[in-house]
């Protein structure tokens, strides 16, 4: 009896041949292969596309990070010396990264410049504007509850008449982002599952259509691993090509969105440009497809192959 020579180069060559054979089989049925690939492509492109949009929204909201600040309006009777001291004290708080003191005169000056109501202000008997301390909360404490407790603490200071959080809506946006992000993760998971099922079903049909061939191959001594291999490579190709299709779909869709987005950014005189994450997704989508493809084929082959025995 002849024992197979277990030679690595030989083994790899065999795998390469099976790999190309499986690709050739997809090629010989272009229509049905293409339809499967497109379905997989869309299923993968959908969560990836939503993720790209979310990433862009995040990028925009991160630009406004500086805008999250608290303005402390001081009581009228707090002296400038007391206020400067409070400013440097506040800077020592761990929740606060930066503070800035603006006296009532500076406030008046700023208002004069910004409002253009200079002559009207001159007619006032005294300066109605309070002194302000602007504090910049620590980035790590931007969670709504943390910022809320900071707000309560500074408002309780005797020198402070009122504390006001600017851009409360930004925090809300962040929290909406987080919710949407989780939704996208769930959607991604469900669509990955559907890719798994699509590939599993495609492989099942491929196995059924090759039933008689499988019987013959088993009769001449093929192990289950040998019979399994071409189907796993079929899953491999469906996954990788589906991933590339997803990338193509996404790139095409984003290029359609790109010009109106630029237009919009220009109208808001913003520097914003769409982030495509192109290179990352070009690796990530086919890789995800590959894993799902091989896994789906594996499950399908495991379920259907063992029942096909020579008779």
């Amino acid at each position: 009896m002849n024992f197979p020579k277990l030679n690595l180069a030989n083994y790899l060559l065999r795998h390469l041949q099976v790999m190309l054979f499986s690709l050739g089989q997809l090629w010989r049925q272009p229509l049905s292969s293409m339809m499967t690939i497109i379905v997989i492509g869309i299923a993968l492109a959908l969560p990836a596309g939503l993720y790209v949009l979310l990433d862009n929204v995040k990028q925009v909201s991160d630009q406004w990070d500086d805008a999250t600040q608290i303005s402390l309006f001081l009581q009228q009777d707090v002296s400038p010396e007391r206020a400067t001291k409070l400013t440097s004290q506040l800077k020592q708080w761990p929740q606060i990264t930066n503070t800035h003191y603006q006296s009532s005169n500076q406030s008046l000056e700023e208002f004069r410049q910004l409002s253009g109501l200079g002559t009207l202000l001159d007619s006032l008997p005294s300066n109605p504007l309070p002194a302000i301390i602007i504090i910049q909360p620590n980035e790590n404490d931007l969670r709504p509850d943390a910022i809320g407790s900071l707000l309560a603490r500074v408002e309780a200071l005797p020198e402070v008449e009122q504390a006001q959080l600017d851009m409360e809506w930004l925090l809300r946006l962040r929290s909406i982002n987080k919710t949407v992000e989780r939704g996208i993760s769930i959607l991604g998971l469900l669509l990955s599952l559907s890719v798994l099922l699509i590939i599993g079903n495609t492989i099942r049909l491929a196995i059924l259509s090759r039933q008689s061939e499988i019987r013959v191959i088993k009769l001449v001594g093929a192990t289950n691993a040998f019979v399994r291999r071409p189907f796993l490579y079929t899953g491999f190709w469906y996954g990788i090509l589906g991933g590339l299709m997803a990338w193509l779909t996404l790139t095409l869709s984003l290029s359609l969105i790109n010009s109106p987005v630029n237009e919009l950014a220009k109208l808001y005189s913003s520097q914003f440009t769409l982030h495509w994450l192109s290179a990352l997704l070009l690796v990530l989508l086919p890789a995800t497809g590959l894993v799902l493809g091989v896994l789906g084929a594996w499950i399908s082959v495991g379920r259907h192959l063992s029942s096909i025995e020579p008779s």
Binding site: N2, P4, K5, L6, N7, N10, Y11, L13, R14, I217, V220, G221, A222, T223, F226
Partner: peptide, 11 residues
């Protein structure tokens, strides 16, 4: 060639 391919014979 099928039985030889299955047995992993070289090219």
């Amino acid at each position: 060639a099928l039985p030889l391919i299955i047995a992993g014979e070289n090219h």
